[in-house]
Design a protein around this nucleic acid. Structure first.
Length: 581
RNA sequence: GGUCCCGUAGCUCAACUGGAUAGAGCAUCUGCCUUCUAAGCAGAGGGUUACAGGUUCAAGUCCUGUCGGGAUCACCA
């Protein structure tokens, strides 16, 4: 029960029912309160049928009695029965004080959870020696937003990145560079160049004659052995180039405002992972089959989870298990969430079932947050084929677009540097919001044109509303508003004002729902609605130009409250607050 | 073939997991800037929620089947 306004309303209803001789469960009443589908109907709607059924009464009769009794209540400004619903409006003076923190920090306060809880969130996972594309961006934005929401909900969070830095793709890339004497151009981003070398290497291999293919295969195998030997020139070059990729990734993370508590690589756990498998093979948990070692999960209809190939090498699942054990040991998380695209659903079912079979109870609190892919109009992106949309390319286009718009409007007043700075912040919001607003289970078909618009349901729209609020405050001739002073809140009786207040009160509930359902898009949607409701209020109600001083003050206070809530919401979505745009 | 996910307005997506007349954004049309930022607001048109059954006071949401799209199912990651 995170919505203070609905808590108040449910208490009013419980008390009123009690005076009628009906006992009702407060939580059940709370869950029977929703927002009116149309603003004209009212602010809140109480569904009578759930509680009526529990009380063994006819919903209509129950509703009529309750409605008549609520009409006498001094905290309710309007109440009307509409079939099985009772539509209500609370006096604004009842809601607004519930939304003010005494700390006056300018942010919505972090929630104190009833039980402490630690989350491990793994996300991003770009492979080194490959280009980073907008698919990775969706992953990171999803994971990072989830981390922020969980932290606001009072949980402790351990954010983990995990790079595929070994295996065939790396060997191919390095083999190609060294065999054909490639080198990056002066001033070129080396990480991006590596991604191109990987694409070129696959093209070279695919175009090879049978004799060349044999030769190439031997060369790649030699590079792979060189890297695994942890010494010699191939190993040294692998370490050097890997860093180029990691540097590029961090450039992108900085731009996106994404951070991690741990930046782990497959090579960090691959050795350990082999010994873990052997240990559990000896314990009789794992079995040998057709020369390979793995977990028999046929009782759970998950087949065979292979952990050692017949050549003795580990696989992806092997390392995932070793890394999970390391995290259980070192971080002691209550819940682990793996943000990975939905093609890995079967893989994670196997990994979790294997951890369970190994006797780790944490396995039952591991979740795969499976999201759909980002595709182009021509279908799936593949870094192997090179038909990807690189994130750095998208960033360049967005910033150019934003600069163009800003120059048109502000070239007379703003410096070039200021324009570039704000353009960057607008571009970041376009990317973050564009990626997070869609349900994780929905595919995103990328087209550049729609990403370059900053109107409607977009990140820049949120920034625009925030900038409007700041502008109102700059232009006000009154003293800066103090929310803890006497404010005649109940003067706020316009529909748009009541709608906005009720929406603000729902903030923490939406954070919680987004966390428990692992759907940060729900919070994005909440934030967009918040901005829209402010705009509706802005259009309907004069603020600075309101002649009545106490009403003007109350509206300025509502503007300030919105600034606090919208600002915090933007922080949770990593959408930068902009004071002028 | 088995398993999992998806199918909602011309297009892109919502719908707080069973609740009122299914909502937004693009796009189209109509209003609103000599008065708080028009990156905005208000309004119009646009829907048999793929199809057929079922469950119940109530189904886009749950169950069954059909059709269509995608993913995945042992030595890839």
């Amino acid at each position: 029960m995170f919505d203070p306004s609905k808590v108040l309303l449910s208490q009013i209803i419980v008390d009123t029912l009690s005076s009628l001789g009906i006992t009702a469960d407060r939580e059940r009443v709370y869950q029977s309160i929703e927002f009116c589908p149309q603003p004209e109907l009212g602010q809140y709607a109480f569904k009578t049928f759930i509680v009526a059924k529990q009380a063994g009464m006819n919903p209509m009769e129950f509703g009529t009695k309750l409605c008549d009794a609520l009409k006498q209540h001094n905290q309710i400004s309007s109440v009307a029965q509409a079939g099985p619903y009772i539509n209500l409006i609370l006096f604004s003076g009842e809601i607004a004080p519930l939304l003010i923190d005494d700390g006056a920090s300018g942010d919505v306060a972090v929630i104190t959870p009833s039980v402490p809880h630690r989350y491990m969130i793994e996300h991003s996972q770009p492979n080194t020696h490959k280009e980073m594309h907008i698919g990775h961006t969706r992953n990171s934005v999803l994971g990072d937003t989830l981390c922020r929401l969980l932290k606001h909900n009072g949980y402790s969070v351990f954010a983990q990145n995990y790079h595929g830095d070994e295996g065939a793709h790396v060997a191919k890339c390095i083999w190609y560079i060294r065999t054909f004497n490639q080198s990056p151009a002066e001033g070129q981003d080396k990480g991006t160049w590596l991604g191109q070398m990987y694409v070129d290497s696959t093209a070279k291999i695919e175009g090879a004659t049978p004799e060349e293919a044999e030769q190439y295969k031997a060369g790649i195998s030699a590079v792979l052995k060189g890297i695994e030997s942890r010494e010699g020139p191939d190993y040294a070059y692998w370490k050097e180039t890997r860093q180029w990729s990691l540097d590029m990734f961090h450039e992108v993370y900085d731009w996106l405002d994404v951070s991690f508590d741990s930046d782990c690589c497959e090579s960090d756990v691959s050795e350990e992972s082999i010994s873990v498998v052997k240990e559990y093979l000896d314990k009789g948990v794992f079995i040998r089959s057709e020369g390979a070692v793995g977990a028999d999960l046929s009782d759970k209809k998950l087949g065979f989870c292979m952990l050692l190939k017949s050549d003795g090498n580990g696989l992806y699942a092997t390392k995932d298990i070793a890394l999970a054990l390391k995290r259980f040991r070192e971080q002691n998380p209550d819940t682990c969430v793996y943000v990975v695209d939905n093609r890995q659903s079967h893989h994670f079912k196997q990994v979790f079932a294997t951890l369970d079979k190994m006797g780790f109870p944490q396995a039952n609190r591991c979740y795969h947050l499976a999201y759909e892919m980002v595709e182009t109009k021509n279908g799936a992106m593949s870094s192997r084929k090179g038909n990807i949309v690189p994130i750095l390319g998208l960033i360049d286009e967005l910033e150019a677009q934003a600069r163009g718009i800003l120059e048109e409007r502000y070239s007379a007043d703003w410096s070039a540097e200021e324009i570039a700075d704000v353009a960057k912040l607008i571009s970041r919001s376009a990317v973050r919001y564009g990626m997070i607003k869609v349900d994780p289970e929905s595919k995103i078909v990328f087209d550049m044109e729609s990403w370059l618009t900053f109107e409607g349901n977009t990140g820049p729209y949120l920034q625009y509303v925030f900038a409007r609020i700041c502008s109102l405050q700059r232009k006000s001739s009154d003293d800066e508003i103090n929310l803890s002073s006497e404010i005649s809140w109940s003067a706020l009786d316009k529909t748009s004002e009541q709608q906005l207040l009720a929406h603000l009160a729902n903030f923490n509930e939406m954070v919680d729902v987004s966390c428990t359902k692992l759907k940060p898009n729900m919070f994005a949607s909440y934030t967009y609605d918040l901005a829209r409701k402010f705009n509706a209020f802005y259009a309907e109600c004069p603020i600075n130009s309101e002649p009545d001083a106490s009403l003007r003050q109350a509206r300025a206070a509502l503007v300030r409250l919105t600034q606090i809530y919208l600002g915090t919401a933007m922080d949770l979505l990593a959408i930068p607050r902009i004071e002028r745009m």
